[in-house]
Amino acid sequence: MLEHLHTPCLLLDETVLRANIKGMADRFKQIGVPLRPHFKTAKSIEVARILQDHGAKSWTVSTLKEAEYLSSAHFKDILYAVSIVPQKMEQVMALSRNGAQMAICLDSPEMADQISSMKLDGPAPKVYLEVDVDGHRTGVTTHDQRAIETAIILSRAKNLEFAGLMAHGGGVSYAANGKAELEAAAEQERTTTLSVKAMLQTAGIACPHVSIGSTPTALFGTSYEGVTDVRAGVYMFQDVFQANLGMCALEDIAATVLATVISHAPHLNRIVIDAGGLAISNDRSCATQRNDCGYGFLSDVDGYVDPLLYVEGVSQEHGYITTRDGSSLPFELYPLGSQLRVLPNHSCMTVAAYEGYNLINGNHEGQWWDRCNRW
């Protein structure tokens, strides 16, 4: 079925995708907290429509290009979850003028001052104060006076609407080992964010919303009391890193890269495919995990994972496959010209190389779904 596709190319298993989306949506319907899906991985209107079918009404993006793409298809309630700078505000306001209900985030009184003193042409965007819950990336810390200073500026701004707090538990949770540690990471994300809310309330500052989330904390949180919505994204596609964390099985990985065997190197015990660092990414986040996959695990075209194989290395357009235990490769099983599928180490990085998805399995098998790239 896939022989006609030029490789390397991106495959999306619709049946697996729909199951992943339904599983997370059903979980939060039962919990009773809205899910605000993160669009940063999928970047596809067709995927957004599936999310909408399962109840999604609001969206998270990592680029303003994603926001424009969503808004053009009438998905309007959008949080741009990357720290804002003044240079991007005209793009934000253009979206607002065109009907999007835009929300932005920041984490300093300096930036709050700059944005609040700008002349903004259009409806006032909501602004979240970002909280650092685990020493990872951006955000104010608990008991940080700058959190109060920033919130005061935002709450008094005439051109902005202070929305509350947001956090991303992407540090401790991504380093967790086992269910207990994942549950603890999720609870840390929630309670740390709520402690900042309590600090603001003590200072007399209303904090209407608390938005938290990552795929691990969304799947393993045991309480969402005090939380307004939950953001997660990679769960739609999953990847080997998530499988190693216990988020899914390898069979739950929806996005894979189809590649062709282009060379045999018996003297190196190596098979070479036409998918290198540009096609499957150079991400090596699995290197810190027990079940290291190199640059990806391998399956045949039907999705059967060969536990013996992994991509041990890449150059720009070449992927180098060998055995995980050092045993001899069964070259006869993978002749020149045959196809393999690479299960990505980090799907967000892998799919970013492609303009769209070749659908396999499900009702839209054989179709092409566009995706939004760039910024």
Rank of each mutant, 00 (worst) to 15 (best):
G303M: 10
S315Q: 11
G303D: 10
S315R: 11
P307S: 04
V305F: 04
S299I: 05
D306Y: 10
G319I: 06
S299A: 11
G313T: 13
T323R: 03
Y320T: 02
Q316V: 14
T323N: 02
V305C: 06
I321H: 00
V301F: 02
V314Y: 01
T322M: 08
D306G: 02
G303E: 10
E317F: 13
G319W: 04
Y320G: 01
E312A: 12
T322P: 09
I321C: 06
G296K: 04
P307W: 00
V311G: 09
Y304L: 14
D306L: 07
Q316P: 07
Y310C: 09
F297T: 00
S315K: 12
E312C: 10
V301H: 03
Q316A: 15
Y304N: 15
S299N: 05
G313Q: 13
D325M: 09
V311R: 05
Y304G: 10
S299C: 11
V311M: 13
E312M: 12
S299G: 09
Q316L: 14
E312P: 01
P307T: 00
D325Q: 13
V314A: 00
D300M: 04
E317R: 14
Y310H: 14
V314S: 02
E317S: 13
P307I: 02
P307A: 01
I321T: 06
Y310R: 09
G319S: 09
S299P: 08
V314I: 14
Q316R: 14
F297M: 12
E312L: 11
D325N: 15
L308S: 15
G319V: 09
Y310V: 02
G319L: 07
Y304M: 15
G296M: 01
D302M: 11
R324M: 10
T323S: 02
I321Y: 05
D306P: 08
Y310P: 05
S299K: 06
D306N: 13
D302K: 12
D302C: 10
E317L: 14
S315V: 12
D325C: 08
S315C: 12
E312K: 15
L298A: 07
G296N: 03
R324Q: 10
L298E: 03
D300G: 00
Y320C: 07
P307D: 02
Q316F: 13
L309G: 03
D306V: 05
E312R: 15
V301I: 14
L308W: 09
D302I: 00
G303A: 10
D300W: 09
D306M: 06
F297S: 03
L309E: 03
